[in-house]
Design a protein around this nucleic acid. Structure first.
Length: 871
RNA sequence: GGGCGGGUAGCUCAGUUGGUCAGAGCGUCUCGCUUACACCGAGAAGGCCGCGGGUUCGAUCCCUGCCCCGCCCACCA
């Protein structure tokens, strides 16, 4: 074995091995219980960053863990066409080349897109492969696949035929660059400082009314002035009209509850065609919707040539100037507010009226709320449940049409006779009147409409396929919190609608990876980290272990190269521990088998039992952590027990026993314990760090072609018995540390032995055992002396230390203290519960809690007393 | 405006039913190339657990107020 672990030489062959063994490919007909995950399909807008790597690593950890536990694991991968995002990327590319998609034409544009998908789809796959993911590539899906398209059309038609999809003109979030509507969830709100302009509108017949706006240009489309109902300041004005400056249009003064009387002057100019609030006011009052801004973001006011055709940002000062000339401007003030931007292009959104396709949400959201409330799907961390419920609870209709080139065509046609219908296969004629003259809807679907079907569409829905029956619903969905609404929520209501069940039982929300400076990591800022670079530097295992260590704390995490590096060192540590044991135990015919028959209890020394009991605890702790999706706990624990418990303490303490001249029984027991421990640790670590663990496990006796074919470790009956010996050994280890510190402080030369006088200690440990353990770790001559009562001390010129092992005494003191604590707690609780003021007035749950605590405290008290008496 | 999360060693962060919970990694300092590992080992220093109240025998942990930081939601133009 090489002296240092080199991931680069090891990783490729294991990737190949896993593929040869078809580790990731799920067998539909296997008798094992299934465990399935639908990989959140990454957008093919570029390569994956560290955030993806984290979420995906966690999924692979789950997949590998469940395979070892005996599940037939289906982790289905795929990619998302991400229509609007990809189109933006390509368009930017074209712009850089000095051309446009229009100049290119549809066909060439499509070729361009396909080439992009090819290249980046491939690179994403390479990234995932590099991390050692065992997803089922045989079932890999792309949202533009034929079968997938069929699923989308089926879902669309079903919703359309049930009246849950409708088309209509409404106010939408319009992106003037994408030239498309977008949904509420795709708005990126940014704080912005603007000028709040107060305008005076003359009231017909005398007087005037002042309104405030940050968008004076929209006043060209005003169709009313609104005040709060009953506002005394405007009692006389309501019902009258004003004549708008510049347009000369007469509009009414109305009352509407949307108006906040405290804001500004308490009067609001109403522009229903260009403001969501105003739109609703307009609907309530039947106001005309006067569009003055065109889809390309320029003013559309042919009657006013001064402004017509100006881009909004140029029109604003121009209109303001005109208003000033007209004497309508009262004052201007700085104003900070949130402005919606397109989350793809970054442009300021222009609310405007447009005919779009919508999904009626009420009927879909109600079951989706109920499903989460009833626990059919659980969020981890739990607090995201409330986030989800709040959103789903007051959701508005979903705008699903996009006016872009790329994406799934809306499967709707209208015939010459005006029959509109949805279809699954492109029709030749109208199903109602057989008219062959059809007009297809020109829009495409919101990408998230297709993503919403992912967990069942990947398995062949709407067909009742074997895969669907076998692997759906999935078990968990691992994703980032910023797509809870965009994706997770929508999968839930679509799943309920089309399959009658939620698509996954658990949703794991991973940490968000920030750049080192705490800002958001994103490609355009250039601070995104490519996982491949980290793999190159530290190896795939290090990246994965890092992901597990920081991915599920529920807290955002800053990119920290040192942290990743620490796991590379950890891999090296594992490598070297293995290398040491394997070479030391190689008897010429291979590694000395951890004997087929484990040594009898008699042959195990206290240190061996100490180690095995820790192994038992580790298995249980890791199980509990994984059960609760607390990967960071599991990783921490494994790191600690492997490095410190095993390498630093155990391996060091058995070194003398591993020498060939050591007593055979003792040597066998140490070998058995060491190999057993290493084997269990490697298996526990494998889902997190598959490469290094495979590489090491291969060298141990009894290995299989892959750890993925081994069982998940279980605690063997004897291991826990070591718990009793633990305290005795632990006490010696504390002594070792104190002696080391003492030697360090006293400047004793490294090799020089000194005398150590001992008394006390675990009565079950012989003086011989105690001495062997100590001398394996520190250079001392041990002398047992029953009369010592002091701690460590230095005697005379040469070092001499005396130490009294307080075995049992510490526990006794602790138990006394605990008893005292319990007594006072019981005292207080009894007093509290005897007080009518408390039992009568406090909240019932508080009283119940107090009773429960009292019962618990009494129980613990009696247990401790019983223990005390037995000793 | 509402809600959520966070403020713990120089840095990045753990700390799940209030009582060995004051921890890890990195960094720093002092030793050590003892035949697994210098991608190492041993030892050490370092913290009013954001601030003020409160509950309690006891609070980093529970309640309350405040100060910062981040995020989400929201129709105040």
């Amino acid at each position: 074995m090489e002296k240092a672990f080199d991931p680069r030489t090891v990783e490729p062959s294991w990737r190949a091995r896993w593929e040869e063994l078809r580790i990731g490919v799920a067998d539909r007909d296997s008798p094992r219980p299934k465990y399935s995950i639908a990989l959140p399909p990454p957008n093919i807008t570029g390569v994956l960053h560290l955030g993806h790597a984290m979420g995906f690593s966690i999924q692979d950890t789950l997949a590998r863990h469940h395979r070892m536990r005996g599940f037939e694991v289906e982790w289905c991968p795929g990619t998302d066409h991400a229509a609007i995002a990809t189109q933006n990327v390509i368009e930017r590319q074209l712009a850089a080349e000095g051309t446009t998609k229009e100049a290119l034409g549809r066909d060439l544009f499509k070729a361009r897109v396909d080439a992009w998908y090819e290249e980046y789809g491939g690179r994403i796959y390479e990234q995932m492969r590099a991390l050692g993911f065992t997803c089922d590539w045989s079932r890999s899906r792309f949202t533009l696949d034929d079968g997938y398209v069929r699923a989308i059309r089926t879902a669309f038609k079903s919703l359309f035929d049930s009246g849950l999809i409708y088309r209509g003109p409404r106010i939408v979030n319009w992106c003037p660059r994408c030239l498309s509507a977008i949904s509420d969830e795709e708005i990126d709100w940014q704080e912005q400082t603007d000028s709040l302009v107060h305008l005076r509108y003359p009231i017909d017949g005398g007087g005037d009314i002042v309104v405030a706006t940050v968008r004076p240009e929209t006043m060209l489309g005003d169709s009313a002035v609104a005040v709060a109902p009953g506002d005394p300041r405007y009692r006389d004005a309501v019902g009258r009209t004003v004549t708008l400056p510049l347009t000369g249009r007469r509009v009414p003064i109305i009352e509407d509850e949307a108006v906040q009387p405290e804001f500004g002057s308490g009067a609001l100019k109403v522009t229903p065609a260009h403001d969501p609030t105003d739109y609703e006011i307009g609907e309530r009052h039947g106001l005309p919707m006067i569009s003055v801004i065109a889809p390309d973001g320029t003013m559309d006011v042919p009657d006013l040539p001064r402004f017509h055709g100006l881009p909004v940002e140029k029109a604003r000062p121009e209109v303001l100037a005109a208003l000033r000339e007209a004497g309508a401007v009262v004052k201007e003030e700085e104003y900070v507010h949130e402005v919606g931007h397109c989350d793809r292009s970054g442009d300021v959104l222009e609310p405007l009226i447009s005919a779009q396709w919508w999904v009626r949400m009420r009927e879909l959201s109600e079951p989706a709320v109920a499903a989460v409330q009833s626990g059919q799907t659980t969020f981890h961390p739990r607090r995201y449940t409330d986030v989800y419920l709040a959103w789903m609870g007051n959701i508005r209709d979903w705008c699903i049409s996009r006016q872009i080139w790329l994406g799934h065509a809306i499967p709707v046609s209208t015939c010459a006779n005006g029959h509109t219908f949805a279809w699954i296969e492109p029709p030749a004629s109208c199903p109602t009147c057989q008219c062959p003259e059809l007009h297809n809807d020109p829009d495409v679907l919101d990408t998230w409409f297709s993503s919403a079907l992912w967990p069942f569409a990947i398995f062949g829905w709407p067909e009742d396929t074997d895969d669907l029956r076998r692997f759906y619903p999935t078990d968990v969905c691992v994703t980032a919190r910023d797509i809870i609404f965009l994706w997770v929520a929508r999968m839930i209501f679509m799943g309920l609608r089309f399959t009658g069940t939620t698509p996954f039982a658990d949703v794991i929300i991973t940490s968000t990876v920030q750049a080192a400076d705490g800002t958001r990591m994103n490609k355009s800022k250039g601070n995104a980290v490519d996982p491949l670079a980290m793999i190159e530097e530290h190896g795939a295992d290090a990246v994965r272990a890092w992901a597990a260590a920081v991915g599920t704390g529920g807290q955002d995490v800053r990119f920290n190269r040192d942290r990743i590096e620490s796991f590379r060192r950890f891999a090296n540590k594992i490598w070297n521990a293995t290398r040491f044991l394997v070479t030391r135990l190689d008897n010429g015919e291979g590694v000395m088998s951890a004997p087929a028959d484990p040594p009898g209890v008699d042959e195990l020394e206290p240190g061996d039992r100490w180690m095995l009991s820790q192994v038992a605890e580790t298995v249980e702790a890791v199980n509990a952590s994984l059960e609760a999706y607390r990967f960071h706990d599991a990783m921490d624990r494994l790191y600690d027990v492997t490095w410190h418990g095993f390498c630093d303490w155990y391996v060091e303490m058995i070194k003398p026993r591993l020498r060939e001249d050591a007593p055979a029984g003792s040597r066998a027991a140490a070998a058995h314990t060491a190999i057993t421990t290493l084997d269990v640790l490697l298996r526990l670590l494998h889902p997190f760090m598959p490469f290094i663990t495979e590489e090491c496990a291969q060298r141990l006796p009894g290995s299989l072609p892959s750890l993925q074919l081994r069982d998940w470790p279980q605690v063997a009956p004897g291991w826990r018995e070591g718990l009793a010996a633990r305290r005795g050994v632990d006490e010696l280890l504390v002594l070792v540390q104190r002696v080391r510190a003492l030697r360090d402080e006293s400047g004793v030369p490294a090799g020089e032995r000194h005398r150590l006088q001992l008394s006390g200690g675990d009565p079950d440990m012989t003086a011989e055992q105690r001495m062997r353990l100590l001398t394996s770790l520190i250079p001392v001559e041990v002398e047992e002396n029953g009369d010592l009562n002091g701690g460590v001390s230095v005697v005379a010129g040469g070092l001499e230390a005396r130490y009294h092992l307080a075995f049992g005494e510490r526990e006794l003191a602790r138990s006394r203290r605990r008893l005292a604590e319990l007594e006072s707690a019981i005292d207080r609780l009894e007093r509290q519960l005897a007080t009518p003021a408390f039992t009568g007035k406090a909240k019932p749950e508080v009283v119940t809690e107090a009773r429960r605590r009292l019962v618990e405290a009494r129980r613990e008290q009696s247990v401790l007393r019983a223990q005390g008496e037995s000793q």
